[in-house]
């Protein structure tokens, strides 16, 4: 019994050490975002003596934060809505239609999950331009649907197999057509996996960098990540402002995380195990 207790303390110490390492960079960035440049260069480890909120007000005035947040929301919202809706429709149908054809189509969608983004980025840029959606947040959201729908199909198809067919058949007897059955019966049953899909895509789209960089042309359309990237180039080692803007960008997702962490963590485990 004593031994267990000892190993438990040892275990805790290691975890705390790792946890501290993991949290250290975020902590450093947050406390230093309230300091002046001088304080940062002379005593980076200490807590700030006076709080320089000016770092934040200046960062706010440089990036139009409300606009950038709205842009990020638009892109992520459209992307997730399309991915969840279209992916679940296709995934459901493929899982419920036995036969060679569905299998081939399924594999066809799946194979794309291995394509590195770099392989299509040049031609994708050209495509976006050809159909006239380059440079708009809505267009960017739409592109994410095309890139993310495969994974959604994959996860829904796996999940649908665990739903008994009887429910749909009952609905059919009641005279509902297939789309109605899907909306009324299946979609609610899919909700656990749809939440997972939503979360995985939220983390991806919100934080993505390269695709928005290639697609968005106007500073006013920049997502929050892109705005900060521009600032990083502009501010040239003006650390207080850079750090403040890093904190501002990170706050929305961290807040979401604090409230939704159970769903997020379970969703990730779910997504991986089903995969």
């Amino acid at each position: 019994m004593k031994k267990t207790r000892l190993s438990s303390i040892f275990n805790l110490v290691i975890l705390i050490a790792f946890g501290a390492l993991s949290f250290f960079p975020i902590y450093m960035v947050v406390i230093n975002s309230f300091k002046s440049q001088d304080q940062i260069f002379n005593s980076v480890l200490q807590l700030p003596t006076t709080l320089h909120f000016t770092n934040y007000t200046e960062a706010f005035s440089q990036i139009n934060i409300v606009q950038a947040l709205w842009n990020s929301l638009t892109v992520t919202g459209i992307g997730i809505a399309g991915i969840v809706l279209f992916g679940s429709m296709a995934g459901y149908k493929l899982a419920r239609t036995p036969g060679k054809l569905s299998q081939i189509i399924f594999l066809f969608f799946m194979s794309s999950m291995l394509i590195p983004f770099h392989s299509i980025m040049i031609t994708l840029t050209r495509m976006a331009n050809t159909i006239g959606i380059q440079g708009s947040t809505v267009g960017l959201g739409i592109i994410y649907i095309g890139l993310g729908v495969s994974m959604s199909i994959f996860l829904t198809a796996g999940f649908v197999k665990t739903i008994p067919k009887e429910l749909e058949e009952a609905a059919k007897i009641d005279g509902a057509n297939e789309m109605q059955t899907f909306i009324k019966v299946i979609f609610p049953l899919l909700s656990p996996i749809l939440v997972t899909i939503g979360i995985l895509n939220l983390l991806w789209i919100w934080n993505d960098f390269l695709l928005p960089l290639l697609m968005l042309t106007n500073v006013n359309d920049y997502t929050i990540i892109l705005s900060v990237n521009t600032l990083f180039g502009e501010y040239n080692n003006d650390w207080p402002k850079i750090l403040a803007s890093l904190v501002i960008t990170t706050i929305p997702l961290i807040t979401a995380y604090v409230f939704l962490q159970k769903y997020i963590l379970d969703g990730i485990a779910e997504g991986a195990v089903k995969g």
Partner: peptide
């Protein structure tokens, strides 16, 4: 509704 709207808006923009 969102997806449909988006498609319409996108076409409209175009």
């Amino acid at each position: 509704v969102i997806t449909t709207l988006v498609l319409i808006v996108a076409c409209g923009n175009d």
